[in-house]
Design a protein around this nucleic acid. Structure first.
Length: 301
RNA sequence: GCCGCGGUAGCUCAGUGGUAGAGCGCUUCUCUGAAAAAGAAGAGGUCGUCAGUUCAAUUCUGACUCGCGGCA
């Protein structure tokens, strides 16, 4: 474009599937390169959801500051927009201290929204409106959207009620069609992706699941329920929270819960990888050494 | 040994005289304030084996075989 612009601040993004060792890598790189960690995990933002989300413990942080953990109540709904807003502010602070922001987490959408500066329509969720819209079937919602915003209707998934509802919500609130997705990244990012053979990852997942059960994962879900988080809400969190909630309600056996949970986590890990599959910017690394040398080069540029 | 029930997709099972479906799993894909969410597409079967009836059998009949339950 020929516009002269200032250098964008450098940030690092560590991504990869669950159980791949992202948190450890983030801490170690932080120690080496004077960084601070911004978590990018849609479940670790919630308080009291520790074991099931694999949240890093204070000891494991080894004195490295971590942000975007424990910032929301599990009773309330968090969102990408909130994530983006808060995490951007934290990054500003870290940069002011002349430290390196290291974004690390398993929620691809969050990382993309933050690092690529995805501009989302400024329409907060209207839960009343959503609830009433959700009563209608997908076909009706689609027809409705078609009338309101034919362009958006053209490339939306006809069967996806959640998306249809959101699109209608945006149009009715702004009285304008749904804007095209725009990105405006304020950063210059280095993407480090951890890739592990699915077979090996599956073993790790099962091992970790057993470990979590041992240290009180069931108890954690029970406590959440006792503190007023509904079973419905717990089921919506997915994975650990969903399957254990179903077990606690006696809807399924313990054995079934663990089996289904195991395959669900493995599926989830595949989905996480799929998010980044087409992204050519990602440096897929095998170990910390590779990560270190890439980062060193990146910072010296 | 006898009686009964069953053998259909990787698993659990529907189903029909004109060569088959579901759920789950598996593979692939989408992603505009719920993203561990929400949604889409696809690949899998010589319907236990052999024979009979029939224009036609996975479906009816018989034998065999394997599994489960009961009686001896």
């Amino acid at each position: 474009m020929g516009i002269k612009r200032k250098n964008k601040p450098k940030v690092v993004a560590i991504l990869g599937p669950t159980a791949s060792g992202k948190s450890d890598l983030a801490v170690n790189l932080s120690k080496k390169f004077d960084g601070e960690v911004i978590s990018a995990d849609s479940r670790q933002v919630y308080k009291k959801m520790d074991i099931g989300t694999g949240k890093i413990t204070p000891e494991e942080m080894q004195g490295i500051p971590h942000y975007l953990l424990d910032i929301a109540s599990p009773k309330r709904k968090f969102s990408v927009a909130k994530y983006k807003e808060i995490s951007q502010k934290k990054i500003e602070k870290i940069l002011k201290k002349e430290k390196l922001p290291i974004i690390c987490g398993g929620t691809g959408f969050y990382i993309t929204a933050l690092v690529d500066g995805v501009i989302l329509p400024e329409v907060a969720p209207d839960w009343k409106l959503r609830k009433s819209l959700e009563k209608e079937n997908a076909k009706n919602l689609y027809e409705k959207l078609k009338k309101l915003d034919p362009k958006r209707a053209k490339n939306i998934e006809k069967e996806n009620k959640r998306r249809l509802v959101r699109a209608i919500e945006i149009v009715t609130k702004t009285k304008k069609p749904v804007p095209k997705v725009k990105k405006n990244s304020p950063y210059s990012p280095l993407f480090l992706g951890i890739k592990i053979k699915q077979e090996d990852l599956n073993k790790k997942i099962d091992k970790r699941l057993q470990e979590r059960l041992k240290i009180g994962m069931i108890e954690e879900v029970k406590k959440l329920r006792d503190s007023g988080v509904s079973f419905k809400r717990l089921e919506e969190f997915g994975l650990e929270y969903k399957w254990i909630a179903l077990y606690l309600q006696n809807k399924i056996s313990y054995k079934e819960a663990i089996e289904r949970l195991s395959t669900d986590i493995k599926n989830f890990s595949k989905r996480q990888m799929r998010w980044w599959k087409q992204d050519k910017r990602i440096n897929w690394i095998k170990n910390e050494k590779e990560a270190s040398s890439l980062l060193k080069k990146f910072l010296s540029k």
